[in-house]
Nucleic acid binder design. Structure first.
Lengths: 190, 190
DNA sequence: CCTATTTCTAAACAATCGCTAAGAAATTGA
DNA sequence: TCAATTTCTTAGCGATTGTTTAGAAATAGG
């Protein structure tokens, strides 16, 4: 009965995500989104409600992408420490594709909004953080021969998590070799 | 001959810096600046040229502040490792005053603009980075009994530097104890 | 005093922001 | 073919952006 859409939601969401990731959410205008997504503003609002809704879908899209590219391989791996290192190195590649250094969309968004981030967006982000921490916990147990108590493991996990945020920021202006050196040093003690 | 100014430049610069630090540069409007600086827009433009010039002066103000509060004490200290730890802990306090977690203005600005940061602003930022790295180099030599070759020390310095950026971001949403644990673990290997 | 110089106030500039209204174009069932 | 429904195009809404202008208020030297 109705007219057919001339776009696919997941495709335009991916393009919006790329823009938000690169420029930040509030520094990405609806005009630019309209241009890069290839659909006009009416269609964006019809499909996503408002800019906040679009950013939320873009964050989901990012999470799916990084989960598939980085988190699942980490989960599947069996060699503990080396797997964590691979996650960190691949995280760098993921954060800067074809010469453009974007950092991590999650970290960027935290830094953009601080504590005043939208509640739904925050929940979406925390879900990935929880998943990552859960998998890291498992890998740290794999990495150590002797048994570790839960507190110690949690410290390790937080240590890696905060280090990843450092990598996210510094990947935007430091040399790759310096970042690799950081990863090596950071993993020496696990 | 002329009329006298009703404000002092360093005072209004400090107030602008606080706003930029908390909200980011592009998310701080001239109207808000006018309100918080206590002078009107004409005076801002007469005194600082444009918003970019104001941001530059604000960055200089931040650098002076953090240099005096954190870097100089670090430089004066003699106990190497403990001094670095104190710098990191005080960096946390400095990044979040009276319950408001702002992170580091330098890190925030990198994350806001990425590689496309204004050249003058970038130079201003790199100057502090260079100073910090120079002092850290000295402290690491202090901290170790045996002699270290320059490459190794540079790795330690980069390691601490990237860790500080992780602290800047995560300080905006993580618990203080988790951040302290991070600092302890980070310094274990030096 | 008067006049030159500077800083103030207040208003407005064009451009852009997120968002929406009005109607044409397209697709389907009847 | 006709009518119903949805998506499209186009234009514009009011608000806010960074910035500037016109003129009043204040301070000094002559």
């Amino acid at each position: 009965m109705p007219r057919k859409k001339e776009y696919q939601k997941d495709e335009v969401t991916e393009k919006a995500m790329q823009l938000f990731w690169k420029n930040g959410i509030s520094n990405t205008s609806m005009r630019l989104l309209e241009k890069q997504m290839g659909i006009n503003q009416f269609s964006i609002y019809a499909c996503f409600g408002d800019k906040k809704g679009l950013a939320l879908e873009a964050m989901r899209c990012y999470k799916d992408k990084i989960t598939q590219s980085l988190l699942e391989p980490l989960r599947q791996s069996t060699d503990g420490k080396e797997a964590i290192k691979k996650y960190c190195v691949d995280f760098l590649g993921f954060s800067s594709s074809n010469g453009i250094h974007k950092g991590c969309f999650l970290t960027n968004t935290i830094d953009e909004y601080g504590a005043e981030v939208d509640e739904l967006l925050k929940q979406e982000m925390l879900e990935y953080v929880d998943n990552l921490k859960e998998v890291l916990t498992e890998k740290i147990h794999q990495a150590t021969s002797h048994t570790l108590d839960n507190t110690t493991v949690a410290h390790y996990v937080n240590y890696i998590f905060i280090s990843l945020q450092g990598l996210s920021v510094s990947s935007q202006f430091m040399k790759k070799q310096e970042l690799i050196n950081f990863i090596d040093m950071m993993l020496q003690k696990i």
